[in-house]
């Protein structure tokens, strides 16, 4: 991807890049307490953010800043109070805490979600095989989620988000619980996807990750500020 001199601050907004996600003026408050004494806590106060194909974008901020809330709104798992989201239909979402059926096995999850994404049988088997290998958990294919370690759950959680090779990947701290080796494999995997034209929005805490992102948004005071 060629960066033109004018676009130094937004290296991937070159000509021909497609916008896969565009959010404007996202506002969200959580209401707490009894209905009579309900108080509102604004978490997001007008977030603007956009992603184009072929970039890895970081979303950072302290605990409780609203990163997960924002991502849920972006993928459509939560309704914003105000604002608009435009996004490709071909997306995958990896929630911060693994969301899995306790009594189903790894390959049963992949089979179900594969069918849900509309993958053909051959697409399913090749993608499943690759993800087992890339994330190194093939030996747990036949294990029920309730018997999996936390790290392996995270791997399955991530595999479900990526299996259909979507144009947009929204990953909420996907490598929490990964060992060092898997962490490296994860970044290999994401950069391969990026080079193939996919766009990734990744929530992260680690300063060490910063060099891996093409761009970074800081979420402070309910707004996303591009670094």
């Amino acid at each position: 991807m060629m960066a033109t001199p004018e676009s130094v601050n937004a290296p991937n907004l070159g000509v021909g890049d497609q916008i896969v996600l565009e959010a404007a003026g996202i506002w969200k408050e959580y209401r707490r307490g009894l209905p009579t004494r309900r108080r509102s806590f604004p978490v997001l106060k007008g977030v603007d953010l956009s992603l184009t194909s072929g970039e890895i974008v970081g979303l950072v901020g302290e605990n409780g800043a609203g990163k997960s809330t924002l991502m849920k709104i972006l993928v459509g798992a939560l309704q914003a109070d105000a604002g608009t989201v435009q996004r490709t239909d071909r997306f995958g979402y990896c929630p911060q805490v693994p969301v899995l059926y306790e009594r189903l096995r790894c390959d049963e999850h992949l089979e179900l979600f594969g069918a849900a994404y509309g993958m053909s049988r051959s697409e399913l088997s090749s993608s499943t095989e690759k993800l087992y290998e890339d994330l190194d958990f093939a030996r747990f294919a036949q294990t029920r989620v309730e018997e999996l370690s936390g790290g392996t759950r995270s791997k399955l959680n991530l595999a479900i988000a990526m299996m259909h090779d979507p144009a947009l990947l929204c990953l909420d701290e996907p490598y929490a619980g990964f060992d060092w080796d898997t962490y490296q494999r994860f970044w290999d995997l994401t950069s391969r996807r990026r080079n193939a034209g996919a766009s990734l929005l990744i929530i992260s805490h680690f300063i060490a990750d910063e060099e891996r992102f093409d761009r970074i948004y800081d979420l402070v005071d309910g707004r996303a500020v591009q670094r």
Binding site: R103, L104, E108, E111, A115, A116, G118
Partner: peptide, 24 residues
């Protein structure tokens, strides 16, 4: 032909749902 997507996903989900029940 592969059956249309909505039939395939309902079939897959039904199978999974019965497995869940069976393991309860």
């Amino acid at each position: 032909k592969e059956p249309p997507p909505f039939r395939r996903r309902i079939y897959a989900a039904q199978k999974a749902a019965f497995r869940q029940l069976q393991r309860m």
